[in-house]
């Protein structure tokens, strides 16, 4: 049995992974880093990156690599704010779920 990763959660995860690299990081690497931890399908991440870019949470720049341009993603100020918000929501959520499901004593 698995839990689905909601779109909002996936946004937060991608923002968190991208924010780890000050210089920005690229699609393949983002995907591999997330995949090491979570079982997400590779093809779900492009739409997420695209959406975050459109919403102004990620900025992009191209840098030559092996004869063609590679696109790098960086978290913007807006993205940072959203990431913080997402973290707070997630912590509140996990605390609540843990209090019921986690076997912790209230």
């Amino acid at each position: 049995m698995g839990f689905t990763t909601s779109a909002a959660l996936l946004d937060g995860i991608v923002l968190a992974v991208v924010s780890r690299e000050a210089q920005g990081t690229y699609g393949y690497r983002i995907t591999q880093e997330i995949k090491q931890v979570l079982d997400v399908s590779e093809s779900t991440l492009y739409p997420v990156l695209r959406r975050l870019q459109k919403d102004g949470c990620l900025s992009v720049y191209d840098q030559p690599c092996n004869g063609r341009n590679r696109r790098y993603y960086q978290v913007t100020e807006k993205g940072r704010t959203q990431l913080e918000e997402c973290r707070r929501t997630w912590q509140a959520y996990t605390r609540a779920v843990n209090s019921l499901l986690g076997g912790e004593q209230p």
């Binding site: 699609g27 690497r29 995907t31 990156l49 695209r50 092996n66 063609r68 590679r70």
Partner: peptide, 12 residues
Amino acid sequence: DAMNYYEDYFDA
């Protein structure tokens, strides 16, 4: 953009 992303992806 999408095509560039997946070209990049294969390259990487």
